[in-house]
């Protein structure tokens, strides 16, 4: 049986807002196609070779956790860049997404360095951007819940994940949501993201399989429950 490897980066530190649901969904949707998935938890200070992972996931966290993670991430910067160049699939949400940009400038103007996978910068803001969000993307309509005060600005030429239909996205100017570089995705969407957006989950699985030279066509599933949940969320404030 084919087995994919998912590295869950910082499961203890970056774990609020249900982001773990993304891991549950990737594993289940692989299993339903007869593909196994091994989950490797990678914590602060652990050694890990990212080239052994097909998918790397990391979620949002509390501010204090984000500081611990920022230091650890610096040590892994070269490894992660190499994995991105090699086509490894990354999904980073909220706090980790911010640190995958070049830097995060906090309220007191101190700078938390990021690793620059995305050509983007995040600046602390006073507006809490919170609520259900709807995004139009290459992979269809995406629905989630955002909750952040950091405002992320992408450089000219950095690809967005999609455009904002409802909610804020990267910043209060509604200049788009998330970022995509090669197979690395960054987003503010909690909710969790993938349960209500199965097309994006399958896109990630397909890219992971293709990178291994395997057949990336996935047999289609009955996603009516996923569609109902997405529709219910899209209507809520």
């Amino acid at each position: 049986m084919t087995e994919l490897v998912l590295a869950h980066l910082y499961p203890a530190e970056m774990n609020i807002y249900g982001d773990t649901g993304n891991v549950i969904v990737l594993r289940k949707r692989a299993e339903w196609r007869g593909i196994g998935m091994r989950i490797d938890p990678v914590g602060v200070g652990d050694t890990y070779d990212f080239t052994s992972a097909d998918i790397v996931f990391s979620g949002g966290g509390q501010d204090r956790s984000q500081e611990d993670v920022a230091d650890d991430l610096q040590r892994r910067s070269d490894d992660i860049h190499a994995a991105v160049a090699d086509g490894t699939v990354f999904l980073t949400v909220c706090g980790t997404y911010q640190l995958f940009g070049r830097r995060f400038v906090t309220h007191d103007h101190t700078e938390m360095p990021g690793i620059g996978v995305f050509a983007a910068e995040t600046v602390a803001g006073d507006v809490r951007m919170i609520g259900n969000i709807v995004v139009e993307s290459e992979w269809g309509r995406l629905v989630g819940f955002e909750n952040h005060s950091g405002r992320t600005f992408l450089d000219e030429g950095q690809q967005h994940l999609g455009s904002v239909v409802k909610g804020y996205g990267n910043n209060e100017r509604r200049e788009g949501e998330g970022a995509v570089t090669a197979n690395a995705f960054g987003t503010y969407l909690h909710g969790s993201l993938l349960p209500k957006n199965p097309a994006l989950a399958d896109e990630m699985l397909g890219r992971a399989l293709a990178r291994r030279g395997l057949d990336a066509r996935l047999e289609s599933l009955d996603d009516s429950s996923e569609q109902r949940a997405a529709a219910a969320a899209a209507d809520r404030p």
Binding site: N15, I16, Y17, G18, D19, T20, G21, I24, I130, G131, N132, F145, N147, H190, G191, S192, P195, K196, S225, R228, A229, A231, A232, A233, R236, P237
Partner: peptide, 30 residues
């Protein structure tokens, strides 16, 4: 307003419980 926390609960622990589950409320679908 955020129901993300449903994904943080160990719902998997109920798969052998034998209960018959129904859902309701505004976010029954979630």
């Amino acid at each position: 307003r955020d129901v993300s926390w449903l994904w943080d609960a160990r719902v998997e622990d109920l798969d052998q419980s034998g209960h018959a589950f129904g859902t309701s409320g505004i976010r029954a679908a979630d």
